[in-house]
Simulated assay, not measured.
Amino acid sequence: MTVTDAALVVAIDGPSGSGKSSVAKEAARRLGAAYLDTGAMYRAVTWHCLDAGTDLDDADAVAQAVRAAELEISTDPSLERVRIHGTDVTETIRLPFVSEAVSAVATNLDVREEMVRRQRALIAAQPRIVAEGRDITTVVAPDAKTRILLTASEEARLRRRGIQLGEADAAALQRQVIERDAKDSTVSNFTRASDGVITLDSSDLTFEQTVQAVLTLVDEG
Rank of each mutant, 00 (worst) to 15 (best):
D57Q: 00
P77K: 11
G86I: 11
D143I: 04
L215Y: 07
R128V: 12
L215N: 09
A63E: 10
T186K: 14
R43P: 08
E167H: 00
E80N: 13
G86N: 12
D57P: 02
T87N: 13
V218W: 03
E91P: 01
L158S: 00
R67M: 05
E113V: 03
D110K: 13
D37F: 06
G162C: 05
T92P: 02
L31K: 11
A144T: 11
V9R: 11
A124F: 08
R160C: 02
A28M: 11
L215S: 11
E113Y: 03
I12L: 09
L149Y: 04
V102C: 01
D58Q: 04
Q126L: 04
R147E: 07
E167Y: 02
D204A: 15
V214M: 10
R112A: 10
V10T: 10
L217D: 04
A52M: 06
I163A: 15
V214Q: 06
R157L: 07
D184G: 01
E113I: 02
L205D: 06
D184M: 02
F97P: 03
Q164E: 15
A7E: 15
R134W: 05
R29K: 15
A168R: 11
L150A: 12
D181G: 05
T4H: 08
N189F: 03
D55E: 03
R83P: 04
S21W: 09
F190T: 10
E72A: 14
E91H: 07
F190Y: 14
H48P: 04
I129G: 12
A101C: 01
V140Q: 11
L217A: 13
T54D: 09
R161Y: 00
F97R: 00
T2F: 07
E220R: 13
N108V: 01
I136P: 05
L205H: 10
D55R: 01
L95N: 01
L31W: 10
A61H: 06
H48D: 15
F207Y: 15
D169M: 02
E114S: 14
T107V: 04
R128A: 11
P127R: 15
F97Y: 07
V139E: 15
D60W: 00
E114N: 08
W47Q: 04
R67P: 04
A152Q: 07
M115I: 07
T54K: 06
L122E: 11
Q119V: 13
H48G: 05
T151G: 09
S203A: 10
P96V: 01
A171C: 02
E26C: 03
V9L: 08
T87M: 10
G32Y: 09
Q212P: 02
Q212V: 07
R83C: 13
L215A: 08
D195V: 12
T151I: 12
A24I: 05
D58P: 06
L205S: 09
R94T: 00
I12S: 08
A171L: 02
D143N: 14
E179H: 00
R161M: 03
L122Y: 06
S22G: 15
T210G: 07
K25C: 13
R157P: 05
V130P: 10
T46Q: 01
E113F: 00
R160H: 02
L217I: 12
D55T: 05
L50P: 01
H85I: 00
